[in-house]
Design a protein around this nucleic acid. Sequence first.
DNA 1: ATAGGGTTAG
Length: 324
Amino acid sequence: MHHQLKPPEAATLPRHLLEAHVVWLVRQCRSLRALRGAHARLLRLRLPRLTHAFALSKLLASCAASAPTAAAASYARSLFDQIPEPTAFCYNSLIRALATPSNPTADAFLLYRRMLRAGSPSPNSFTVAFALKACATVPALGEGRQLHSQAFRQGLEPSPYVQTGLLNLYARCEEVALAKSVFDGMAEDRNLVAWSSMIGGYSRVGMVNEALDLFRDMQAAGVNPDEVTMVSVISACAKAGALDLGRSVHAFIDRKGITVDLELSTALIDMYAKCGLIERARLVFDAMVERDTKAWSAMIVGLAMHGLAEDALAIFSRMLQLKD
DNA sequence: ATAGGGTTAG
């Protein structure tokens, strides 16, 4: 009954009901295409001006929360441009949507700067957190450092989302000393994301002992690792070529009931291959319910490293067959 | 009025 709302009815309904309808309609959308469809239907309702702005904001936020693609970014920009007086919420959503891997220029950062220059609306912790994420995606260390000092000046630095955003930015930029100083400053607020990000940073630069020590500290601090944490821990074992350790970490994963998802399976394949247990790598690969290009590649590269060229080519053919 | 951090191969 909700979806049968017609323009003549829309004009007579109270605003909160129209807004509820907008929320309901946007929440149904599972894809950009669906979002565009909802947009078209909302336009036909000829909503009052304020409700229309509300609808555009909701569409924009949903677009920003969808898969970070170039298409989502450009649709988000077009939505933003239709909003007469964008609020901080709108800016935040667009900054979030612009943080795509296919958007190598720091557009999100430029928009943040434009917001600052205009003087209004004022950025909040969401703005900084999304902008930091964009800088981490690029990655853009210089822009991220500017965000850091501005966040400090605006008193937004204490937000845990800003903290983890900074930590992650530095970790992704391989600035482990900077990442560590943010991490140390978090003291009481160190949550799962902060621990995972810091462990990931150490693992990325090959500081495997630091990564593994931190993994132990994390457990001592009573924070339970999840599958994302374990990807970095397994990757540290792979880089160290530490088979015994890798096996015991794998046993830990099973014992704790941590989900071995696509990413963790790929990390395990890589670890077993690098540590010399290609058959265990193959077992993990065979047990996977879905495989992406990285999973196939980890298996193929692993077999190739072990001199199993024919097996590698056989897997490659299987991969090609499944593609079409 | 509405929203949010972390993951892997070569």
